[in-house]
Amino acid sequence: MIEIIENIKKQFEAETEKVKSLSELEELRIKYLGRKGNISNAFSLISDVPAEQKPQFGKELNQLKQQAEAVYNKIEESFKTKSKSLMLDLTLPGRRSFTGSKHPLIQTAEEIKGIFSNLGFVIEDGPEIETDYYNFGALNFPENHPSRDMQDTLFISKDVVLRTHTSPVQIRVMEKQKPPIRMIAPGRVYRRDTPDASHSPFFHQIEGLVVSEGVTFADLKGVIESFAHIMFGKDINVRFRPSFFPFTEPSVEYDFSCVFCRGKGCKVCKGTGWVEISGAGMVHPNVFKSVGYDPKKYTGYAFGMGVDRIAMLKYNINDIRIFFENDVRFLNQF
C-alpha cells in the first residue's frame, strides 16, 4: 500500500513542473490537496491498510501532504512576486545621489601637470605672497626699471607682494638644489587688473624650468611643441616670436595654431589662425648668478603658461569670470 503514496508523490512532482499560471496551480491544488483530491482520498484508504503498516502509512502520507503544501505555497509565492514586479513602472527615475566634480580649471591643470609629469618634470610649489626679491630682484628685474611695469603689482608692503607670476618658485627651487633640474610649479598669481571678460586680478599659471649642462633653445622649442601636440593634437603648430622678459634671454612669446579652426582663421583667433599662449626663454645668466649657479657651466630654459587661458581654449569659454562665479549650472558641465 505504501507504493500508492510513492505514486502520488511522483505524479505530483511531475505535474508541478508543468504549472505555468496561477489557474493551473489552482487546478493542481484541487487535484491533490482539495477535499476530494488525491491526497485526501489516500487518507480514506487507511482502513484498508494492514494494522502493522498503519503507523508508517499515516506518517508518510502526512509528510507528503506537508511537502505538497510547501511546494504549492512556494510556487504560489513565486507567481505572486512575478506578477507584482510586472506592475512596477520601471520607467520611473531611480534614486540618485548628488555627484561632484573637479573644477574645470583644476581638471585643466591636472591634464597639463600629467603631461609634464610624463615628460619627467617634478611638481613644485611656492608661496603666493612673496618677497620683492623672489618675485623681481632675483629674476633680474632691476629696481626702478620700467620692466616692473609689465606686471601691475599688488603690494602687501614695500618689500612684500602678491606674486605676479609663478617664476619665484624657480628661484626657491634652484636655491635648494643643484642641477639637473626639471620642474613645473602650478599655482595662483595676482595682478592689479580690473575684472573683465579677459582679465581677473587672480589667475593660474604653470611655470616650467629645466637646467642642466648643454640645455639649448632647441630643447625649449621641442618641449613646447611636444606639449602642444599632446594637449591639443598633432596638427597644432607652434609659433615662436621674440619678446622680452628680464629673467630670460633670448625671450620667447609662443602661439599655438588656433585650436578651433586649426589655423584657418575664425572668430576666436580674430582671423589670424593663431592664439597667444604665453612666454618662455633661456634662463638669463643673471638669474643663475643670483642663485649661485655658474652660468658658464649650466644653461636652462623656462616657460610659463596660463591655466585659465588654456581652459578657455579647451572648453570654448570667452569670459574668464565664469570660472570664479561657481554657478553649478556651469560646474556641472565638467
Binding site: 573644477h103 595662483r188 587672480f202
Partner: peptide, 8 residues
C-alpha cells in the same frame, strides 16, 4: 562639487 573662489 569643487569651487574656486577669490583669494582677495
Amino acid at each position: 562639487q569643487e569651487a574656486l573662489t577669490t583669494s582677495m
